[in-house]
């Protein structure tokens, strides 16, 4: 098993773990953290599976993608956190009500 595969499998594991938290956890902060764990998993897959160029150096493209992805994820997290605070202020709870009981 090459290191690349190990990285990729770990990334997938993180993705699934984060997905579980995002869907199953009720607290919004945990959901947001779950999203971040998922994101890290995807970035690990991207970087881990990044192919080597013929000269032996690492391929810059996946790394560029990861950096862009991180920027996006940070922005999304910021939005999510501020929105969470607004939700708490409006409803008094940091969880989403069941849509069928509005």
């Amino acid at each position: 098993m090459t290191p690349a595969i190990i990285y990729a499998l770990t990334g997938l594991g993180l993705f699934v773990l984060g997905l579980y938290a995002l869907i199953m956890r009720a607290h919004l902060l945990r959901k947001i953290l779950g999203f971040n764990v998922m994101g890290s998993g995807v970035f690990l897959v991207l970087a881990g599976l990044g192919q080597r160029t013929p000269m032996g150096g690492p391929d810059p493209v996946p790394q560029a993608m990861v950096i862009t992805g991180i920027v996006v994820a940070v922005a999304a997290t910021a939005l999510a956190l501020s929105l969470m605070l607004r939700v708490v202020a409006a409803t008094g709870r940091a969880r989403l009500p069941d849509p069928h009981h509005d």
Partner: peptide, 24 residues
């Protein structure tokens, strides 16, 4: 606000699935 929060989480989940596909 609650609608937007749910929308955000769903949207992020969708994007990450898409991004993982790109990685593969």
């Amino acid at each position: 606000l609650v609608g937007a929060m749910r929308y955000l989480l769903v949207s992020l989940l969708g994007s990450l699935a898409y991004l993982l596909g790109i990685a593969l």
